[in-house]
Every structure is written in C-alpha cells, then in structure tokens.
C-alpha cells in the first residue's frame, strides 16, 4: 500500500521540481516482488476519471504530479494488472507500490 510524504527519492526528480511545493506521486510497479518495466500506469481521480498515463521505466518506476485529493494508480501489463489508492493532502513525495498479477 501507499506510504506518504517520506523524503526518500527512489527515482530522481526532474530539475526544477520542488517536492516542497508540488504533490509528487512516485513508485514502482512490481510482479512477484520484482520491478516491472513497460507497464502502462494510469492515474485516476477520486471519481475514477482518467488523469494521466506513463510507461514504467525498466526499473519499474513511475511518477505523477497531482492536485490534493484521493487518487488511484492502476497498472496494465502483459503479465497482469493491479492498482493502489493514495490520499495526497499536501505537497511532498508520496511513494507507492503497485503489484500486478
């Protein structure tokens, strides 16, 4: 499940991004505990509406910039699908894991 606001950087943020000001949802897609690259990771808002989509890096990493609120991160891959919910109230780095099966 989701951690919240820990200042750990599992994947480097792009230059110019200040996690003290923005809500950053970041994490890994995993299958059997191993990172899954090439998964289609989408961010859905509280009503289930599509907001954005990225492809996970070879290390399974993904990242979104969000507004305050409740979000669902859903991953789709040839090996399966999975999702994780997060409640992001304020600026900071929110670290998630999404297991696909």
């Amino acid at each position: 499940m989701s951690g919240c606001g820990a200042p750990e950087q599992s994947a480097a943020l792009p230059a110019g991004v200040d996690p003290g000001r923005e809500i950053v949802l970041t994490g890994k897609v995993l299958a059997d505990g191993q990172p899954v690259g090439g998964a289609f990771v989408r961010l859905l808002d509280a009503s289930g509406e599509f907001t954005a989509e990225v492809v996970s890096s070879p290390e399974g990493d993904f990242r979104f910039f969000a507004a305050p609120g409740s979000w669902t991160v859903r991953a789709l891959h040839r090996s399966g699908r999975g999702e994780t919910a997060v409640n992001a109230e304020g600026p900071g780095l929110h670290t998630l894991e999404v297991a696909v099966a």
């Binding site: 792009p14 110019g16 991004v17 923005e22 808002d45 907001t51 990225v54 969000a66």
Partner: peptide, 19 residues
C-alpha cells in the same frame, strides 16, 4: 484536458511538472 486542468487546479497533465 483532464477535469483538474479544466477547472484550473492544474496547468499541465499530471505526468508533467506544473511550473
């Protein structure tokens, strides 16, 4: 655009930096 960009909460899609 996404509802949050439409309403003015965000300036770019949520996978891009907002500055």
């Amino acid at each position: 655009r996404s509802p949050d960009e439409f309403s003015g909460k965000l300036l770019a899609p949520a996978h891009l930096p907002q500055e």
